[in-house]
Amino acid sequence: MPLIKIRDLHFYRGNRAIFEGVNIDIQRGKVTAIMGPSGTGKTTLLKLIGGQLRPDKGTIEVDGQDVHKLSRSELYELRKRMGMLFQSGALLTDINVYDNVAFPLREHTDLPETLIRDLVLMKLQAVGLRNARNLHPSELSGGMARRVALARAMALEPMMIMYDEPFTGQDPISMGTLVNLIHRINDAMGLSSIVVSHDVSETAEIADYIYLLSGGKVIEQGSPVQLKRSGSQWVQQFMQGLPDGPVPFHYAGPEFADDLLKPEEYA
């Protein structure tokens, strides 16, 4: 049984459809990548899985429980077992790095401070920021903030971690380390990972399975090798990052020429 089972997911923002009939399975113990152009709703998908948004139709099951049918306290229990790495990091800005990583431990466990210290230093060591523990979030770069957020997401040793764009803002070295790290914690801690990203090569390197999203639908899925061999022009363009092809770069709407020529119509 897959860890996450998404069936016939529909979600709208106002009149704009973000998802129209998406089916996704996330297998246990694997790294699953969700890829797609900017603005397709990857972050939205993670928020739907985490129960922060409600689908208009369809179901999302995590570990056999329908996320949107749970009571508040059941949902909170489930979330303790889900780690999420926000695109922005979402660190608490009034406390330092150390306290940020210790935060979920202090909130959810009665561990003594000495044990918390060991755990926090261990997680910070893993992301290479043990010596940055006294810095405040405002003193971190974007890439560092995301690594602290990763340490925090690992703190409660969850059954799964959702990474929203973990690679953006990382230099080649920390990128390599991070790719390794995601792989390592996935295998060593025996958890399942969902990686949202548009960094094709890094993602292809760690993912066991990839879903490509566009226009509210899954347009292709398979192992990295399968996707690279895909006959679809769309998939080829996306995987190789070519500028010309069927993948739209523009937000949907009237053509540019029409927009210029008929200002009154498209004001």
């Binding site: 928020k47 985490g50 922060q52 909170y76 229990e77 979330r79 303790k80 889900m82 999420m84 926000f86 922005s88 979402a90 660190l91 608490l92 800005t93 935060f103 979920p104 909130e107 959810h108 957020a149 925090r152 409660l156």
Partner: peptide, 22 residues
């Protein structure tokens, strides 16, 4: 308001901490 706009409240919810209580 700033905690909300920097997703700190959202992040807390995902850590199973109720921001209204905490």
């Amino acid at each position: 308001g700033l905690m909300k706009s920097t997703e700190q409240l959202s992040g807390m919810e995902m850590m199973a901490v109720d921001p209204i209580r905490r």
